[in-house]
Simulated assay, not measured.
Amino acid sequence: MPPQHPTKEPNSNTSPGDDTPGKELPPDAPLSTLCALLTTDLNRRSLPTSARSVPHDPLDKYTKAQMPKIYDGHPTDIFSLIDPKVVDEWDSRPACKLFALPFGIEARNRSRHNSIRACIFAAVAEITQSQQMGISAPKPSKQAKRLNYTPSAFLIYNLTEAQRRTLLEKTVWSSIDISFRVALPEPNLPDFLFNIKGFTTMSMDLVRSMVVAVWQDKETQTSLQMISQAAANKEHTYSQSNIKAFTESLEVKRLDVKEKGDILAPRFNIHAESKYIKDHNLWAQIQDFLADCQYSSNMLGRGTTQIAPYECRICYSVDHPHGLCPFPSIAGWNRPS
Rank of each mutant, 00 (worst) to 15 (best):
Q306H: 12
E311Y: 07
R302Q: 07
K23W: 01
P30K: 03
K278S: 10
P27T: 01
P151F: 01
R302G: 00
D19E: 03
Q287V: 06
P336N: 10
H5P: 00
L224S: 02
M299P: 00
R254A: 06
N281K: 05
S152T: 06
L224H: 02
S274W: 01
D217V: 10
Q66N: 10
N195Q: 15
D28L: 06
I270V: 08
R117A: 14
D288L: 07
D217H: 14
D88P: 00
E186C: 06
S141V: 13
M204T: 12
T40W: 10
P190H: 07
K260F: 15
K69I: 05
R44M: 14
L81T: 04
L324Q: 09
I78E: 04
I307V: 14
I78M: 09
P328D: 14
P138E: 08
P190K: 12
F121S: 15
E273G: 01
Y316P: 05
P26A: 01
R181T: 08
P16I: 06
D72M: 02
G323T: 11
Q294G: 00
T222W: 08
D177I: 06
V211A: 04
L31D: 10
K258M: 12
N188C: 11
K145Q: 10
S174C: 09
K85D: 14
S337Q: 14
H322T: 15
E169S: 10
L184K: 09
D72G: 02
S296K: 09
R302I: 02
E169F: 05
D217T: 08
P48G: 03
S152W: 08
R208L: 03
Y295D: 00
A29G: 00
L189W: 05
A137Y: 05
E235Y: 11
M202V: 02
E89T: 10
D191F: 11
L168C: 12
I330R: 04
S80H: 07
T237M: 13
L37M: 12
G17L: 07
C119H: 08
M299V: 00
K260I: 13
T247V: 15
D19K: 07
V257D: 15
F268P: 02
N298T: 01
P55D: 00
F199C: 08
L290Y: 00
Q287G: 01
Y71A: 12
H280R: 03
P187C: 02
Y310V: 04
R313Q: 15
K253W: 11
D177Q: 06
D72S: 04
A183Y: 03
P336G: 07
L155I: 10
S209I: 06
P58Q: 05
T63H: 05
